[in-house]
Design a protein around this nucleic acid. Sequence first.
DNA 1: CACTTGACCTGTCCGC
DNA 2: TGCGGACAGGTCAAGT
Length: 290
Amino acid sequence: MPELPEVETIKRGLEQVLLGLSLTNFEVLAPARFHHKYDIGKLDKQKITAVRRRAKVLIIDLDDGNSILFHLKMTGQLIYQDEKDRIAGGHPTPPLKTPVPNKSTHVIFSFANGGELFFNDLRKFGWIKVIPTPEVEPPRFNYLQAIGPEPFDEAFTAEQFYKNLQRRKNTAIKTAILDQTVIAGIGNIYSDEALWLAKIHPNKKVKDVTQNEAIAVFCAIRESLKIAIEHRGSSSRSYVDHKGDIGKFLDYANTYHRTGEPCKRCKTPIIRQKIGGRSAHYCPTCQSIH
DNA sequence: CACTTGACCTGTCCGC
DNA sequence: TGCGGACAGGTCAAGT
């Protein structure tokens, strides 16, 4: 699912509705995706002190020093339903476009104000963990430990990005920027979009990418992610925000899922090719491999 | 270590 | 309408 812009959109939405709320209960319908080393009884009255994002992981901090981590993988959703949305005859007012709970609902969190947060995941790749907040930061939590820099971190420079790329010198540039240890948060949609913007062929080997080209890719990544966040992410299939609403970025995408359509720069039809096991969409004319 | 491939799941879509 | 196969936003583990 969700790449950085989608998780960021959910993060901003949940921050608005969850901050300061007290948890009262949670109901686990699918235990396999839920991991915690935490006394469930203590969840009562824990207040939410922060909603954060790191890479594609959404983090909710509680005031007892624990954090709830969510990875949505391909089809995960986090939908918040306010109590007032449920008053009228069992029907949400206004109705949520994604009714909850539904058959892919795995966990339901309840809050003191009557609101509920639903974790849905059709393909069951996603997970939830409850861990002590200090363990969220490296080196204690081994998922985030290895994750590379945030694209919008001001301390993360194009030069550092080029340096990080060198660990993957025999790999296609598309595969390299999908590597979360090189840069955090890029997925299949925005790797295609960024490489189109930078005019680099997705199958170009990293060792053939010059430093100037890498700088162009770095800037294009930031630009693609920024525009995608402005459009509240991409809804190719199951992605929705915290209100169950879709994102609109794909209306403005240049290559992703546009096989056969004319390139917006040079009119050559966009082609699709498997690269590193993923579908790459690109313009064979203006994205250079040389 | 770096790189590739298949596995994990369940649904939708497309061609016959 | 039914059936089979390809495909789907992401990691992971196991193989070379």
